[in-house]
Amino acid sequence: MKRILAFSLLAATIVASCASTSTGTPQASGSSPTGQHLKIGLVTDIGGLNDKSFNSLADQGRQQAQAQLLVVTSVTESKQQADYVPNLTKYAQDKNDLVIGVGFLMQNAIWKVATQFPNVKFAIIDGAPTDDAGAVKNLPNVANLFFKEQEAGYIVGVIAATMAKNKVGAAIHNTVCSMGGLPIPPVDRYIAGYQDAVKTVSPTTKILNGYSQDFVDQQKGIEIGKSHIAQGCDILFQVAGGSGLGYIQAAKAAGVYAIGVDADQAAVAPGTVITSALKKVDVAVFQTIRSVRLGTFKAGDNSFNATNDGIGFGTVDAIVPADAKAAATQALADIASGKITPKDTVQVK
C-alpha cells in the first residue's frame, strides 16, 4: 500500500538548520588514491526520489558527480523509518567511500551506523549525528550539511514585500501569504525569514500564513491558496512539497503570484512563479562528494548559506521590477556580510 493511504509523510520540504559554527577539522582522505573510482551511496528518506524537493535535489547532485567526477554512485529509497539503519549499513558494508543520508529523520540512524563503521565517511543533509537520547554527537567521520533556509525565505520575502508595497501588476492588495506543510520548525524557518523580510521592508503589508497539513495532497494546498486569495493575498509562498504545487496552482488560476521553494520552480508555472527560495542540496551533495575525491572532506558542521552560495533565489520572472530584484540581491549580500540576520521563528501564525 505504501503511500496510497499513507498520509502526509514527514518528507518533502523538511529541513533543519542550526547555528553552524564549524567544529570539525578537515580530514585527509587516505582511503582512495586519486585516479581510482570512489564508491558513493545515497539513501533517501521516506519522501522518495520523486519528491521534487530535497531528495530529488540530492539525487541530482549525485548524478552530477557521477557524470563529472571519477565516482561510481548508487541510490536506495527508504520506504519506512525502520529502513534507514539497514540501508545505510548495507552501503557501509559494501565498502562505499561515502554514504549520504538525506533528511533530519535520519539523524539517529547516521549516528548508529557511523559509530559502527568508523572507517567509512558519512554525510547527512539537514542534520547531525544524534544519539539515542536525542543529543547531537559529532563524529570524526560524519559531515553535517546544514542550510539556513530562513535566509532564503528572507530574500524572497524582500521581493514579495517590495512588490506588495509598490502594488506591482496583480499585487494590488498589499497582502502576502505563505503556506507550510505542517508547523514543524524546519518548515517554519523558511516562513519566519519570509515574514521577517516583509515586516522589515514593508511594515504596512498584511501577512497571512496557513498549513495544508500534508506534504503530498495538492487539493489541500489549493484550498488554502483559494482561502488566502479570497482574503486579499496576491503573493503566495509555498513550503509544502507536492501540496505546495497546489498552492502555486491556486495562484495561477486566480492570476496572482507565487514563490517556489527548495528547487527553482519557475517552470512549474511561468508568469505565476515570480521566483523561488533556493536550498541548494544538489550543490551540497556534489561538493561533499568532491571533497572526498580531493581529500578535503570536513567532518562536523558544514553550513550552506548566503556566504557560500548554499542558499539563494531562483529565476526571477519578468514581472518583477528591477528595484525588487536589486533589493533581493542587496539582501543576499547583506546577509552574507552579517548586516542582516533573518529571524528563525514565525511571528504571524
Partner: peptide, 29 residues
C-alpha cells in the same frame, strides 16, 4: 486518518513532544 493528525499534534507541539535536535518531531526516549 484521525490518529495520524493526533500523532502530528502529540509529537510536534503537544504533550508528548520532546526537545530534539533540530526539531525532529518525536517523543521522549
Amino acid at each position: 486518518y484521525t490518529i495520524v493528525f493526533v500523532m502530528h499534534w502529540l509529537l510536534q507541539a503537544g504533550p508528548m513532544t520532546a526537545q530534539n535536535a533540530f526539531g525532529t518531531p518525536a517523543s521522549t526516549p
